[in-house]
Computed example of a mutant assay.
Amino acid sequence: MASNYLTATPRVKIKVARVLTRPTMGHIVSVATRNRIRNHGLLFDVSDPEFTPQVRAEMFWRTYESAEIRMIRRHLQDARTVVELGSSLGITTAHIASVLGTGGRLVCLEANPHLVDGLRRRAIRYRHDIALEVENAAVTERTGPVPFQLAASAQCSRVADNDNGLSGGEITVPSTTLREILARHRIDDFDLVSDIEGGEASYLLGDPGSLEGCRRAVIELHETSFGGKVVAPTDLIDAARMAGLRVVERHGPVVALVRG
């Protein structure tokens, strides 16, 4: 079956992936692994309720943030300082921690306050010799409180489109900018990992100068709106190039970039 899957068409692969990551499969995986799932070489305790059955299945079959994790492990080996925007459950955070150089530093921003403690535990499990700093904040083009839309899956939670009051699924969270993060943590040279559901426009378009010290980056790009205009991933790639970064690898919406 594995051989057939490898030679299958993209459409067939998508159908197979959907079957393998159904909630029912997630429950089977949980029982079979006793909630200890190995993902790209790291073993995770997924017993926390933040891990939905679908996420557990995706982690088991290595489809959860697979492009980001592969690029992190391939391009950020021996990094000294990494800023991660949108750490979510902390799976990519743990992979970043595992490839950091000795005495490295990892600064994480996550808007969902319910995920902060868990992602901190998962990152520090793999590296006790690094400096880990975690902030509960959204990354936008401005500072101040913003509405944040909670979803059943942590991957789908995001800053709300407007601030005309909160619905039942929204909370208020603090927001900050990439430039302020760097200043607050006294960071000059850094590598960047970013998956903030369109918030990447805040620095790529709103403040490209904040990327001056960025050496390498792994960014998931999203179609979004900025300055009243719809922005496509290709527009964001062009902005990254204007900021001195070039694409060295791309898989769908995920790109790896280096300076020069």
Rank of each mutant, 00 (worst) to 15 (best):
L109Y: 12
E133Y: 11
A217T: 06
E223C: 09
R80D: 09
W61P: 09
T93M: 09
A79F: 03
A94Q: 04
V134A: 04
V46H: 04
E212Q: 14
E212W: 14
A232W: 12
S202A: 15
T7A: 14
P53Q: 02
G118T: 12
A243V: 10
L6D: 15
P10N: 12
V19T: 04
I37F: 12
N164K: 11
S66T: 06
G168N: 04
S225Y: 07
R11C: 00
I14V: 14
V159M: 02
R125K: 09
V248L: 09
L109G: 04
D188M: 02
H185N: 10
T172M: 11
N35M: 13
T7G: 13
G213Y: 10
V107K: 01
L76V: 02
G104K: 02
M71L: 01
P49W: 01
Y5H: 12
T52W: 08
V99L: 10
L221C: 05
D191P: 05
M1R: 13
V248G: 03
N39S: 11
R186N: 15
R36D: 00
V55T: 14
W61M: 05
A131W: 08
V99Q: 09
G165N: 07
V116M: 02
F190R: 08
T140A: 13
V247Q: 08
L150S: 01
P23H: 02
T92M: 03
H40W: 02
V31I: 15
L43M: 05
P147T: 01
L166Q: 00
T176C: 09
G26H: 10
F190D: 05
E58C: 03
V83A: 07
R250V: 07
V139C: 13
H40L: 03
G168E: 13
A79D: 09
L236W: 07
A17T: 12
R215C: 04
R250Q: 13
V146E: 11
R186A: 15
P253H: 06
F148A: 06
C108A: 03
L106H: 08
P113D: 06
P49S: 13
A111Y: 11
R74M: 04
A240D: 08
S202M: 08
S194T: 02
L89F: 06
T21H: 06
N4E: 15
I181H: 02
E110T: 00
A152S: 15
S210Q: 10
E180F: 07
D117P: 03
N112M: 03
T172H: 01
I171H: 13
D48M: 04
E110W: 00
G86Q: 10
V193R: 09
L42M: 02
G118E: 09
Q155D: 14
Q54M: 12
V83E: 04
A79Q: 08
D191N: 08
Q77R: 14
R36S: 03
P147M: 12
E212F: 15
T102H: 13
K13V: 06
I219L: 10
I187Y: 00
A131I: 13
H251V: 12
V116P: 04
L245E: 10
E110A: 00
D238E: 05
I96E: 03
M242W: 13
P208A: 00
A151E: 15
G26P: 09
